[in-house]
Amino acid sequence: MTAEVLPAPVAAPVAAPAIELAGAARWYGNVVAVNDVSFSLGAGVTGLLGPNGAGKTTLLHMLAGFLAPSAGTVRVLGRSPHRDPSVYRQIGLVPERESVYSFLTGFEYVRYNGRLQGLANADSAARVAIARVGLEDAADRPIGTYSKGMRQRAKVAGALVHEPQVLLLDEPFNGMDPRQRLAMMDLLGEMANAGRTILFSSHILEEVERIGTEILVMVAGRLAASGDFRAIRALMTDRPHTVTIHSSDDRKLATTLMADSAVFAVELQPNGLSVRTAHLSAFRRIVATSCQAAQVRLLEVLPADESLESVFDYLVRR
């Protein structure tokens, strides 16, 4: 089922992929959390998608070296992160749990992270990181007084204070308001453009749609799909697509379309024709010929369900 739909995104500057999994699996007793997952990632932002319990966090923890794979290999920057602390020089980690040292101020927390990374200029690095997440105003308040979103940003600042090559974020947008979310997405995009590898997990699809054109979809511990989500969608030919069509005469076009075997259903709606079909590429030709045959002028063709949510929905239900 884990047909790799597209070749993994190949990034320009790094020769070896920053993240590489080969047949990686992890089980707890007889519960399999991650099952035979293989992929590799270079620079860029990748969204790790899946419903709760799909194994996203387990996967991220394996990448962060906090879990050894039960089978297969996990490599970050060519090294196995488990039991090799030196690799953390190049990894930034934002765990899901909200816990932070509540008695430290935001600035102290980020600086502490910088110092533990061995930065000589932890103070200025901390100030830069705080500014990048837009937390300057609250930097001198104890984290215990922060809102969820602020805490989340402080965690991100702490994770990128040492300018890591690889950034792993577990549900980083939790608790952020839409504006903060946009800012954080822009920040991740910027970092990706600078040649870093960013992998973040999420179960909220609009987040991924906005910044991560590359996605990995996990369902029940397995990698269900990977690649550009629109391409994945197009390749899932066994799934009915819904397309909305505007034309000069919807009713007339509908009768013509119904004659074609590739069309399952046609529904007349106030805002156009809703057509369900199996093959998107075949359907494009059909629409063209049908319009000609019915002598109807085609105004607009919209893929009605081309959102990540529907892709995801479909994968999860399969």
Binding site: S86, R97, L116
Partner: peptide, 15 residues
């Protein structure tokens, strides 16, 4: 207890 041990361990420091 607080779950902060991850921040400490995700650092290039000999154990």
């Amino acid at each position: 207890d607080e779950g902060t041990i991850l921040y400490l361990l995700a650092k290039p420091i000999p154990r």
